[in-house]
């Protein structure tokens, strides 16, 4: 299997890391080119089932591009994106259109710049997220227009589900307010609640902690851990806030200029000289030194 070669940085060849054993998402040799610009260059990584996987890297590293490839907003130029459900169904995401990825493969996402339906109430936002099951219940609208009771029941179930997520995100009291009226932190939480209302197998969060104050950030951590723990939803997140990344993630993938430079547990990545170099920068002379150190680390970790 190809991922064996990918995890060489911090693990031995014969012991697979936990996320490689039962991956919910395997990204294999993905390229994304925009004309001459290579935004993602031969990226391969796996996100384990029930894990919180963080995708980090300096600005312009191609993180959001990877997200857009996974959620179908871009078609990767080359490569494979395999999503496996717990039930065993698997989907090749690079062959699916964006709305099918959400509807069928059950990948939900949030956006870096919040995209709520600002003129609709919080509750309506959560009901729009349950469009597909409700559409079926309304008999593709026809039975619903006739006012048959089957749809009313389905709508009640959908509202219950929305209430559940309103409770979890602490938005219950604002349910009837327009989404555009919520404060920034609440909008971020609502976007997560809306994504969770689609019942996703994999939740992709694009900078969920951006612009949050420390208290809101801690609440977000608790919410994400709860989503992983109670809902058994795997999470893939892009984040700049290292307190979030190091505290809650099980697995960190680091990108720089579209290339993966590190992949491992948070502590392993934190001490990876290449990651430090990418974030802080080094002199040319130091690069050689760093590479030497790197060789030593690899030599040490190999029995």
């Amino acid at each position: 299997m190809s991922f064996i070669t990918e995890v060489e940085v911090d693990v031995t060849v014969d012991i697979l890391p936990s996320w490689a054993l039962d991956p919910v998402l395997s990204v294999e040799h993905v390229f994304m080119r925009f004309g001459g610009l290579v935004a993602v260059n031969d990226l391969s990584f796996t996100a384990g089932r029930g894990d919180i996987t963080a995708l980090i890297g300096p600005n312009g590293a191609g993180k959001t591009t990877v997200f857009n490839c996974i959620t179908g907003f871009y078609k990767p130029t080359q490569g494979m994106l395999l999503l496996k459900h717990g039930s065993g169904d698997s989907y090749l995401l690079e062959r699916m259109t964006d709305f099918r990825i959400s509807a069928k493969a059950r990948v939900a996402r949030t956006f870096q710049n919040i995209r709520l339906f600002s003129g609709m109430t919080v509750l309506e936002n959560l009901l729009v997220a349950q469009h597909n099951p409700l559409m079926l219940a309304s008999g593709m609208t026809i039975l619903g227009v006739l006012g048959l009771p089957g749809y009313k029941r389905a709508e009640k179930v959908a509202i219950e589900r929305a209430k559940y997520w309103l409770d979890k995100t602490g938005l219950y009291s604002r349910a009837d307010d327009p989404a555009g009226d919520l404060p920034y932190g609440a909008q971020r939480r609502l976007e997560i609640a809306r994504a969770m209302c689609t019942g996703p197998e994999l939740l992709c969060l694009d900078e969920p902690a951006a612009g949050l104050n420390p208290r809101e950030s801690a609440e977000l951590n608790a919410l994400l851990l709860d989503i992983r723990g109670t809902e058994k939803t795997s999470i893939l997140l892009i984040e700049h806030d290292m307190s979030v990344v190091m505290e809650i993630s099980d697995h960190v993938v680091v990108l720089e200029y579209g290339t993966k430079i590190s992949d491992g547990t948070p502590s392993a990545v934190r001490n990876d000289p290449r990651v430090i170099a990418a974030y802080l920068g080094v002199d040319d002379e130091e690069v050689e030194k760093v590479e030497e150190q790197l060789d030593e680390i690899i030599a040490e970790s190999t029995p």
Partner: peptide, 14 residues
């Protein structure tokens, strides 16, 4: 109405 508010968000919700 969601389409009027934000088409991309609509697609991300299936």
């Amino acid at each position: 109405e969601a389409l009027r508010e934000d088409e991309i968000a609509c697609r991300s919700l299936g």
